[in-house]
């Protein structure tokens, strides 16, 4: 059985979340043009303290959680609680994935990741060229810092003879970088990344819409993907580029996830409410990043109780079992939906 089989079984048997997705802070040191986190440059208020984060990890682990994602909203490494949080995740035997802009991946942080056996680091790099990345990320010098830290992480990993953390370059596809896919693959290989992954942009605000692929960029997308795949093959780096050969995949927000072919769980457009728990910096729960912060708070409530009895999660689950996603589910990434469809396919009729 692979992990998807295990998750499918968890969903069918009604256990706790397989994955917890934690957003330690909304604060950020960059100013990305496509970011939706409005309070990222104000002093954080009402964020969970370290003891609360550790309690959530412990309780989720007690429920059988096997994977923890530590990521955004803001930059997770800006949280003073991030080191203890990551330590606890590994101490409880969970697989750990960190998503970071990489600018704060300093020597002590890298040493921590290597010491505790952290599993995967996703670094947000939005262009193969400094001027592309820095313009999108709103900070001159961000590219140089992130790439430098990625190089060092790979070298230090190799020096210890480790295979982890795996290094993944994560790129939000925009009109600013669609012509750099081949160079991104080469950059990935050069820094020693294990994969280069694209994700589609969600565009609400005018500055985000301005970054969406226009007709010209969409028309050349398949060609750029082909170039990127060829470059990736040449340099030996894995990518998810093939998924983006279809323009439809880039149109987040325009297509609701389809219901499955069966009934009940097999009808669910998405199974995340049954196996995935996201927790925002202020403690509010949801089944994913798209719906982040919509549910009740875990600040004073045990994870098990909330997972079993949250009116919000119950409502979502009921809708999914009827084959009906929420309106906002149209904003979901194809990278996630592929995963959800694969789990659904393993649920027995």
């Amino acid at each position: 059985m692979d992990e998807l089989d295990h998750i499918a079984r968890r969903v069918v048997e009604g256990g706790g979340p397989w994955t917890i997705e934690l957003y330690p802070t909304l604060a950020c040191n960059l100013d990305c043009r496509f970011c939706d986190t409005a309070p990222r440059h104000v002093k954080p208020v009402d964020e969970l303290d370290e003891a609360q984060w550790l309690r959530i990890v412990d309780e989720a682990a007690d429920m059988g959680a096997r994977r923890a994602m530590v990521l955004g909203g803001g930059e997770p490494l800006l949280s003073p609680h991030a080191p203890a949080l990551m330590r606890r995740i590994k101490a409880r035997g969970l697989s750990g994935m960190l998503t970071s802009n990489g600018t704060l991946l300093t020597a002590p942080v890298r040493a921590l990741l290597l010491d505790i056996g952290w599993d995967e680091v996703h670094l947000s790099i939005d262009g193969a060229r400094a001027r592309t990345h820095d313009a999108l990320r709103g900070r001159p010098g961000a590219f140089r810092r992130t790439v430098s830290h990625a190089c060092r992480l790979r070298a230090e990993r190799d020096q210890r003879g480790l295979a982890a953390p795996r290094i993944v370059i994560h790129t939000v596809l925009t009109r600013a970088n669609v012509d750099e896919l081949a160079e991104l693959a080469r950059l990935g290989a050069a820094v020693g990344a294990d994969r280069v992954e694209l994700d589609a942009l969600v565009a609400y605000r005018p500055e985000q819409v301005a970054l969406q692929l226009g007709p010209a960029e969409s028309a050349r997308l398949s060609g750029r993907v082909a170039e990127g795949l060829e470059a990736a093959r040449e340099v030996g780096v894995a990518t998810n580029y093939a998924r983006f050969v279809e323009v439809r995949v880039t149109e987040r927000g325009q297509h609701a996830p389809a219901a499955g072919p069966g009934e009940g769980l097999r009808a669910a457009p998405c199974l995340k409410p049954f196996h995935h728990l996201a927790v925002t910096a202020d403690g509010r729960l949801s089944p994913c990043c798209v719906l982040a912060g919509e549910g009740e708070s875990l600040r004073r409530r045990p994870v098990a109780e909330a997972w079993a009895a949250s009116p919000y999660l119950s409502r979502l689950r009921a809708g999914m079992l009827r084959g009906v996603a929420t309106g906002r589910c149209a904003e979901c990434s194809e990278n996630i939906l592929v995963h959800e469809r694969a789990i659904r396919a393993r649920i027995p009729a």
């Binding site: 193969a128 060229r129 430098s148 160079e183 950059l187």
Partner: peptide
């Protein structure tokens, strides 16, 4: 060469001007 470059935070490849 690649390993040595990465160890000092340097991308170890030739590239067109402006890239990386």
């Amino acid at each position: 060469h690649a390993e040595a470059c990465r160890a000092v935070g340097l991308v170890p490849v030739s590239r067109p001007e402006g890239a990386f």
